[in-house]
Design a protein around this nucleic acid. Structure first.
Lengths: 157, 157
DNA sequence: TATTGTTATACTCTATAACTATA
DNA sequence: TATAGTTATAGAGTATAACAATA
């Protein structure tokens, strides 16, 4: 009787369900819940993992470059890098040519944690998308890429 | 030279990009930005629009039913309903059989705003997915449904 | 002038807990 | 005991603004 507690009848949400945006949100919440739980086991969040990952793959990257690549505010990147450095996962080194910036690299501990968290995330996705065929996974990825590469509305006028 | 500011070379994010979850997040952020801007024109958020929409389509629905249908905490629903009621978009009526609950319905102003916001959202989605073929839209919707209907990990043991 | 890194602040969103009235 | 609604609070996540040092 869950949908008929007060006699209003089943809960209709035809309008919401007709919107791709709403279904996208619900799907994302479903995925995000599992990803968050997986990363919590490594004391990481989506953001801290993303920063760790980019540093691991781009040794010498600066904080500003991270901000641009991941679309995080610079002020937010500082806090994340502080945390990762404090845990001995990455380190800040001086940049010879530019005394403003740091060159970030992962420590061996950071590299190790990144590898283990990445493996856990792949396992997590295998669970979430376990019923998907390889073709369905590829198609989903292709559609997500299409969305990300959409023209942005021109805000310069 | 945006990706080579410090000589670290182009920013690599192969690991992140190999994860469906990360691409999902980026796509969702892209879509959400436009949806939020669209709804802001009606002084609505995704949540307040969702509640308004469900009330419009299920006259007499209770707050608890909204919470279950939209997966919002009851305490959050109260605040949203307060706001919509304060703006004259929905109203709370007594339920004959249950003195605890309210029967919610939209006012004519609420019905009108819902219709206009819904039309704006459809137009917004037409812009976002303008380059998608009808088949691609349908396929995306089908894949999103698959994700939402995934078995949840059993937490009752 | 623009950019890098930083700090402090504020705001939004959401979850949690505790409570009352009623079933 | 369980449910409907409510209130207050706290936390996470994120954005904004201002600043010093350097380019």
């Amino acid at each position: 009787m869950r949908d008929m507690d007060n006699g209003a009848g089943p809960v209709r949400q035809d309008a919401l369900r007709s919107l791709l945006g709403y279904n996208f949100k619900r799907s994302y919440m479903r995925i995000h819940r599992d990803i968050r739980a997986t990363l919590a086991g490594f004391d990481l969040t989506q953001r801290t993992f993303s920063v760790l990952s980019v540093v691991a793959e781009t040794p010498g990257i600066s904080q500003s470059e991270i901000s641009r690549a991941l679309e995080i505010e610079r002020s937010g990147t500082v806090v994340i890098v502080d945390g990762l450095e404090g845990r001995g996962l990455i380190q800040r080194d001086k940049v010879p040519g530019d005394r403003r910036a740091y060159a970030l690299t992962v420590t061996s501990a950071g590299s190790d944690l990144h590898a283990r968290a990445l493996a856990a995330l792949r396992a997590c996705e295998d669970r979430i998308f376990g019923t998907f065929t390889p073709q369905e996974r590829a198609h989903l990825r292709a559609l997500l890429d299409l969305i990300q590469n959409e023209e942005q509305p021109d805000e310069t006028q």
